[in-house]
Amino acid sequence: MIELISWLFVAWVPIQYFILLILARTHWKSWGTATEPLPQVSIWIALRNEEENLPRLLQSLDRLDYPKEKLQILLADDQSTDRTGEILSQWAQNRPNVVWISALRDEKSLTQRNGKANALAQLEDHAVGDFYFFTDGDCLVPPFWIKKTLAGFSERTGLVIGITRVQSETWLGKMQEIDWWNTLGIVKVVNDLGFATTGLGNNMAIRKEAYQACGGFSGIPFSLTEDLEISKAIQKKGFRMEQVVSPENLVLTQEENNWKALLKQRKRWMAGAMTLNLGWKIMLGMQVLFFVGLGMMFFSNWVLALVCWGVKLVLQGLFFRNMSMRTGQRLLWRDLIFFDFYLLAAYSLTILYYFWPSPTIWKSRPY
């Protein structure tokens, strides 16, 4: 019985990646680039203590290939304690299409919305676009980000997410980068099949009608993963969701530079994962149980266990490389081989940290 259970846990994940590889090649959706007439667009960004990251974000916004008369940029300073507000004020000068506000927080907002969702909700009355784009303060957006993402919208599409790559300078950062290819690759395949997936707060666009229909960030329930929550609300209103994966809409984000920061991030993400439907929970759970089954198999037949592990490494590596090459990136096998060691540590520590009786810390706020 134990051997059967171990076989079930170990076989599931390689089979899953084999199926994902086939689906990625047979059901992949691609789009062109939006053409004239281009719609009015509003970019929404909530910022808290982003003094170090702001210059490169603002430079990337200046380089956007989109008509200035059709582009509005909305920036909310979420009670920063550094020079974020000062930098925003200076940058907004002589840019008539830029609006920045200092977000307010009261007792009601503390219980109804997280800090980011609260700041974004306060931008609602300022938005004039027909499509709302979202990214984060630690990101770098490419010049054709808007045009490429807009191409993913059809008549009943309410939300389009893009693709995000972690800029890695360390081994831990490289593992985070691969982890993102893993997650977003699975999301892409599942989304292209027409099943519900998740929002992506640092690379996401929402049709105005869909945002208003679901109540926006001021109307969704409290959540530490507001992008997931609003995507669920939009899909419940009957709007479709798409994911556009291309070099033209590849957003770059910063790595978490140590395990402590990474676990804080993953504890928050796990809170969101616990609200997913049963199918997603099974898929994510089997990723963890693979290592449990592998350990059980190791004691009875270590050679077979190594073979099974090798098959998994090859299949998932091929899937990651297929996903990254779609955006002009290339992953090295020397990094992919060590990914499972990171994954085992990350899964184990995240589960322990999630159930540890301590608050979730996000942007220096406890939840």
Results as ranks from 00 to 15, higher is better:
K174C: 08
M175R: 06
V160C: 11
K232V: 04
R165G: 04
L150R: 13
M204G: 04
S168I: 00
T170C: 03
E248D: 15
E242V: 01
G216I: 02
I161R: 13
E242W: 08
K208I: 00
I161K: 10
E169R: 09
E248S: 15
R240T: 09
L228R: 11
V251A: 04
R240F: 15
A151P: 11
G216K: 04
R240Y: 15
G219M: 01
C214I: 00
M204L: 07
P221L: 01
R165S: 04
P221C: 03
Q243V: 11
V189L: 03
D179T: 11
K147N: 14
P247V: 01
G162Y: 13
A151V: 12
S231V: 02
M241Y: 07
L228F: 14
S231Q: 08
I234G: 10
V187G: 09
G162F: 12
G152H: 06
K147R: 15
I163Q: 11
D192N: 07
E248W: 07
W171V: 01
G219V: 00
A210T: 05
E155N: 11
K188Y: 12
T198H: 12
R207V: 00
K188L: 00
R240G: 14
G201S: 08
M204C: 11
N182T: 05
G173R: 07
V190Q: 12
G158K: 08
I220A: 03
K174F: 06
S218T: 13
E248A: 15
A233M: 10
M204Q: 12
V245P: 08
Q167H: 14
E155V: 08
S223M: 05
E155L: 07
Q167E: 13
R156N: 15
V189D: 02
I230C: 08
G201Q: 04
L184H: 13
V160W: 06
K148R: 14
K232S: 11
Y211Q: 12
L184R: 11
Q243I: 10
I206A: 10
Q235V: 09
R165H: 09
R240P: 00
V189K: 10
Y211N: 10
N182V: 01
T149F: 02
P221Y: 02
I186D: 12
N249A: 06
R207S: 11
V245T: 15
G158F: 09
S246V: 02
Y211K: 09
Q235F: 05
V187S: 13
G199H: 05
L159F: 04
L172Q: 00
V166P: 01
D192S: 01
Q176P: 07
T149R: 00
L200K: 03
I220L: 02
W181V: 11
E242F: 14
A196I: 03
N249F: 06
I178C: 02
T157A: 09
S246K: 09
V166L: 04
V190K: 14
G238E: 03
E209D: 14
K236H: 14
V244A: 11
I146T: 08
Q167N: 13
V244G: 14
G238A: 07
E226R: 06
A205Y: 04
